[in-house]
């Protein structure tokens, strides 16, 4: 595929995914049926817009545009109000319509702008032009990429900018036991931070998976604990400590397939007894210590 057609396909897919509300101008300038056309003229000029929805007691009753104003001026009907000039048949878009639907409505109707209403209440929530759509698509293509680039640029310079014989960066995360909903969020943030520090994707992947397995164990089996990561120039060391119940038989716990996970954990795709063995496999070194009724203390390191 050529680059251009690749970009075009991408835009097409984006237009399916993005919703009208992501591209529209919210809270647009509105006028009332009794607004004089002279006032409309000022509004269009001052706000640099080419049309406005007409509301009567909060309800959308029409739309008035710069063409309507010009016609009025040509006929010398400058004293009239918006209500006698506006188009009463208003085509609208719903805020949750996909952008691609908006594009085809614009093509079909030939209008420059369409008011956007909330599907449930019918209330006016914004206005959309083809320009808005284009801006939104272009922005979407760039934004995500650039934001992460900036984070990465800033963080990765720590190791070069600090003058020392050795340097290590430490971060701590709190894991809440039993909170399955947030299970994974600590490892996820650690992973993002390691990538921002400029570590190689393979090393980050090994640390991330191992940490995630350990985090899941804290969530499933313990009242919670802490996750400490120490990033040096040569290795990342992660230490995971919790406040009990402890592991009765460490050797057994390290055996592939051994698991005491309850059914509800299995129903969520965990508890195959591969967590600790997987950590051991991924790490360059690993240490596991535990005391019944007191704590479990796991530490593993990955060389960079």
């Amino acid at each position: 595929m050529t680059n251009l057609s690749k970009e075009a396909t991408k835009l097409q897919e984006l237009a399916y995914e993005l919703k009208v509300e992501q591209a529209m101008t919210p809270d647009p300038v509105t006028v009332a049926p009794r607004t004089p056309m002279t006032r409309l003229r000022e509004l269009l000029r001052d706000r640099r817009i080419s049309g406005a929805p007409v509301l009567s007691r909060g309800k959308l009753v029409g739309i008035v545009t710069i063409e309507d104003l010009i016609k009025c001026l040509m006929k010398g009907r400058t004293g009239v109000a918006v209500g006698s000039v506006m188009s009463q048949e208003v085509h609208t878009l719903c805020a949750d319509d996909p952008l691609v639907h908006a594009v085809s409505r614009f093509q079909e109707l030939g209008f420059g702008r369409l008011p956007v209403v909330d599907r449930a209440s019918g209330r006016l929530v914004g206005i959309l032009t083809m320009g808005d759509i284009l801006r939104c698509l272009l922005k979407q293509l760039e934004v995500d990429y650039r934001e992460e680039e900036i984070h990465r640029y800033r963080a990765s310079h720590i190791f070069e900018d600090i003058l020392a014989d050795d340097i290590a960066v430490s971060f701590r995360y709190q894991v809440v036991g039993g909170d399955f909903h947030r299970a994974g969020s600590c490892s996820s943030r650690l992973r993002t931070s390691l990538l921002r520090l400029g570590l190689s994707p393979e090393a980050v992947r090994r640390v991330a998976i191992a940490t995630y397995e350990a985090e899941m164990n804290l969530v499933i089996y313990t009242p919670g604990g802490t996750l400490d990561a120490r990033v040096g120039k040569e290795r990342v060391v992660v230490r995971v400590r919790d406040g009990g119940p402890g592991i009765p038989d460490i050797e057994k716990a390290l055996t592939p397939g051994f698991s005491t996970a309850p059914d509800w954990v299995r129903a969520m795709g965990f508890g195959a007894g591969m967590g600790l063995p997987n950590i051991k496999e991924l790490a360059d070194e690993m240490r596991l210590d535990s005391k019944i009724g007191e704590f479990t203390d796991l530490e593993f390191g990955v060389c960079l």
């Binding site: 490892s187 992947r205 991330a208 899941m216 795709g269 508890g271 997987n278």
Partner: peptide, 28 residues
């Protein structure tokens, strides 16, 4: 656990589970 142990990076995962952890697992 299979995803974490076996999936290669730069891949697509097909799954019948739709929990938040599927996304976290994929990310890792």
């Amino acid at each position: 656990s299979d995803v974490l142990a076996l999936m290669e990076p730069n891949s697509i995962l097909l799954s019948g589970l739709t929990t938040l952890q599927v996304v976290y697992t994929a990310e890792m």
